[in-house]
Write a protein that binds this DNA or RNA. Structure first.
Lengths: 337, 337
DNA sequence: AAGAAAATTGACAACGTTACCAATGAAGAT
DNA sequence: ATCTTCATTGGTAACGTTGTCAATTTTCTT
């Protein structure tokens, strides 16, 4: 009752309006050299018998499918849903569809997902970061379609890269804290510094502090995935070290906010007793009081541009000859520094 | 250089080890009636020449693909990334892959995505809510595989439903507010009450309040997608009406938090001047001070269970005969009521 | 050791579409 | 009016895999 015998095929459409299968095929796609009369006839028949194109068959004969493989670490990080949103918006109107894989920050997963997805002959691939395992690189090197690496632009793109400079981020915050007069600065990160992007920020941060004759006093790298809770743990551990820290740069806003809430709950004044800065510029940090100092990354825009580039390349539109698209970071001066 | 002439096919594998194509096929899949010797021979050849199975061709001959269509409104709502995370975790180990479509809360988009995705013969479909347009229902009625509707359990599932009772949520909050002694209660929603789930909560909330002889005083339905900012707008509009409201139930935590921040910034004491309650239990509302009163929904669990059910049904495992899986809601009593 | 049953392997066709080339018809050039 | 050119349509084959059934080999039975 719920399932029809068989969905109608092009053959059925062709039979219904008395043309050849191939003509029906041409009429249904946007092929040139099809008379208006034929196209209308075929389209009418298709509508009547409820024909729906079978992409699987088409893709078998042709080459690529219209699937876009998107590989991100996880959706629980606020950053990636925004990227996915941007990609999806860019793909509106095209036939391209998002196929999502999540690595949980594990290279082996990235490989497995990629290997699996390649069997679908995707039209393009989006993955996060510029750092990949050798196997992943090897797999990608055999892929003929466009590849966009998002988030990070400090390094060489396989095909294209859209994102921000992690070094720039680290330097921006370093200069900001020093300019504000903080002298004993610390860093708090998490999750064994996965993804490697956070380490890039930290290194640049440290280097810039040193250059400004204000070297990093200490850093705390926590176990586990970043969360508000972990941020509280981080600031606590840091304060316990009794190093007279007056400013902290956190690997991301989640940690920073967690620390902020911890301070508020424990009578530690921000920024008088200690200044806090994060990274990402998630919505939340703009709305709370005090507003968190952070660096806003244009996540939606990154996704959007990645999607647009992919779509352009898939449809063979003219491409800019840039490979790397470095978007602007914005230092948001809140009241926590 | 980057692209090989043609990826090797089963034919190449078969030729390489001197067996028939069909034997190679059987050896590569987990078919029975294949000798160990043959399987090993074929697998070795496959490895040597770098064969990778072409799912497209397989799916053409067979029936369904191993793609799971997931249709959600958007990723910018905190709720859906959690669900997607849960689904993905449940699908780990199976061959199933997530294909994501976003409707932007628009029925026409839902239809278009579904129509498109059906041409891929997905193994299963997950979509959000129980309310769908007639066209969507019609499309789904022709789909032979499992369908899971997530989020909402107040109504009839097409195939299976996993979520919470929206009515229960509305009632829980109503009873909580009344029990706490609030007498002039209001409601704030957004986005023309899309998705319809929020309207279900509101109606149950209103009904329960009436039953408790404490009818809803007023409600504000805002334009635009829920956000912290919109929550601030909402509470402001409400206070401007000068109705002496002492408690507000918001359609979700985003609105409630926005309102809370607005109150904090404007010297309005929560809950003394006005009590605030939200819905969803996003991570943030547990960490801030004061903690937000809200109803926590098990979003990850919903996704996880949906994924598990789908996977079971796809692999023809034994299924529970329940159609609707209503998970528990948890009233989190914070300090805002 | 001969016959029956089971296990293993192979040949062929088919899934629905589109690329390629051939055939037809119409319009334009001389 | 004849020849050429272009637009439109059709026929055939192919994409890579697997279901069905037939052929072969192995194992088991007596």
């Amino acid at each position: 009752m719920s399932k029809d015998s068989r969905p109608p095929t092009l053959k059925d459409v062709a039979a219904h309006c008395g043309v050849s299968v191939i003509s029906a095929s041409r009429a249904m796609s946007d092929a040139p050299n099809v008379s208006k009369a034929l196209r209308e006839k075929v389209e009418r028949s298709a509508r009547i018998i409820g024909y729906r194109r079978n992409r699987i068959a088409g893709s078998l004969r042709g080459q690529a499918t219209d699937l876009i493989t998107v590989i991100v670490p996880s959706m629980s990080n606020h950053v990636f849903p925004n990227i996915v949103d941007g990609i999806d918006d860019a793909l509106q109107g095209s036939q391209l569809r998002l196929v999502l894989g999540m690595t949980k920050y594990d290279d082996a997963n990235e490989e497995a997902i990629l290997r699996d997805m390649l069997t679908w002959n995707p039209a393009g691939i989006i993955l996060s970061g510029l750092e990949h395992s050798d196997t992943t690189k090897e797999l990608l090197s055999h892929f003929a379609g466009p590849i966009v690496e998002v988030m990070d632009t400090d390094g060489d793109a396989i095909d294209m890269a859209v994102g921000n400079s992690m070094s720039e981020a680290g330097e921006l915050i370093a200069r900001h804290l020093v300019a504000k007069g903080y002298g004993r600065i610390a860093y708090v990160g998490a999750w064994g510094e996965r993804p490697k992007r956070s380490a890039k920020r930290r290194v640049a941060f440290e280097t810039e502090l040193a250059r400004l004759n204000n070297p990093l006093v200490t850093s705390v790298i926590l176990e586990g995935e970043s969360s508000l809770e972990l941020g509280a743990t981080g600031i606590k551990q840091l304060l316990d070290r009794d190093l007279n820290i007056d400013a902290v740069f956190f690997a991301n806003d989640d940690l920073a906010l967690g620390a902020l809430f911890y301070c508020q709950a424990n009578g530690i004044h921000v920024p008088e007793d200690i200044a806090l800065a994060g990274f990402n510029g998630i919505e939340m940090c703009q709305s709370i009081t005090p507003r968190l100092t952070t660096i806003a990354t244009p996540r939606y825009q990154i996704g959007r541009l990645a999607g647009e580039l992919l779509q352009k390349k898939v449809s063979r539109a003219e491409m800019p000859d840039k490979k790397t698209f470095q978007l602007d970071l914005e230092l948001i001066e809140g009241s926590t520094t």
